[in-house]
């Protein structure tokens, strides 16, 4: 029964990683950059909900909507002012800028909210369920996280594969010049990608803070790194890869916490990543890069 319990909470944690990883992988796919400020968007989303719900006493639903709206806007703004001017710059310059934006967001939060961790009130009001005569208890947060992440992943998959803007996104990620010749506005498409990625990060942040209710300016850093790992694990640039990578990472992390050691769980997660990348450098679903002459 323990195993089942670890597995379920692992899937839930993995769902959160997957939502964050999707932002990394989509932005990488389309703008060919690693947006290391992505994790900190999660933290800003958390503070936004905290301010709306705990400080101003509003309904959790308003907290969710406000947080998603602010993060979406934040993601688009970061892209517009920090990354867009560097569209033709060297990749290293963009990477350093992204790290800079990450520190900027963390320090802004430090300035506004202080360094002490805030206790986050869960935005989930559904009660947990108890199965097998109380031997297996699944919290409302865990349930909601699993359901929400699965629904979002299905919706995103449909959007990318079945709609016109989704098709344009895939076209841009493959060949920006050819996409422009088709009439696709590449800048608008990149902005849309950042908007979607940041909205997903906000949702992930709220779910994360609801399950692990402590909020500090560094809350986004570790999940951000792990989600990035998940994206690489699944094959960076691949949307199903990010989903599988995220969920696997959550399961591995929770099982190692349960059966091996809480302290070592992160080390185990990253060791497995290294082994996988040694065997398959492009990640689980990564595409083999072949140059046709």
């Amino acid at each position: 029964m323990n195993f089942l319990s670890f597995l379920i909470s692992g899937v839930s944690l993995g769902g959160i990683y997957a939502l964050i990883a999707l932002g990394y992988t989509m932005v990488y796919g389309i703008a060919k950059m690693l947006n290391f400020a992505h994790g900190d968007v999660i933290m800003i989303g958390g503070y936004m909900a905290y301010t709306l719900c705990s400080t101003m006493g509003m309904n959790p639903m308003i907290g969710v909507i406000g947080s998603v709206a602010v993060c979406t806007l934040l993601g688009v703004t970061i892209e517009r002012f920090a990354y867009k001017p560097l569209r033709t710059a060297a990749p290293l310059a963009v990477l350093i800028t992204a790290i800079g934006v990450s520190y900027l967001l963390q320090n802004l939060a430090l300035l506004i909210f202080g360094s002490a961790a805030k206790s986050f009130t869960s935005v989930v009001s559904i009660k947990g369920i108890s199965l097998f005569d109380g031997e297996l208890v699944v919290s409302g947060e865990t349930l909601v996280t699993i359901v929400v992440s699965v629904v979002i992943m299905i919706a995103l998959t449909l959007f990318v594969n079945k709609t016109k803007p989704g098709r344009a996104m895939r076209a841009v990620s493959e060949d920006k010049g050819a996409a422009q010749l088709m009439g696709v506005n590449v800048n608008a498409t990149i902005a849309l990608t950042f908007a979607i990625g940041s909205a997903l990060a906000a949702v992930a942040g709220l779910l994360l803070c609801s399950s692990y209710p402590s909020l500090s300016p560094y809350t986004g850093a570790m999940p951000g790194i792990k989600a990035f790992t998940a994206a690489v694990f699944g094959g960076i640039g691949s949307i199903p890869g990010a989903m599988i990578g995220g969920i696997l990472l959550g399961i591995i992390e929770n099982l190692s916490k349960g059966y091996i050691s809480t302290e070592l769980s992160d080390a185990i997660v990253f060791s497995i990543l290294i082994i996988i990348l040694l065997v398959k450098p492009t990640g689980i679903l990564g595409k083999k890069i072949s140059e046709k002459v």
């Binding site: 098709r167 895939r170 076209a171 493959e174 060949d175 050819a178």
Partner: peptide, 14 residues
Amino acid sequence: RIFQQLTVLENIKM
């Protein structure tokens, strides 16, 4: 410069 990873129909629709 067709979109290699899109289907033929998706390319045409582009």
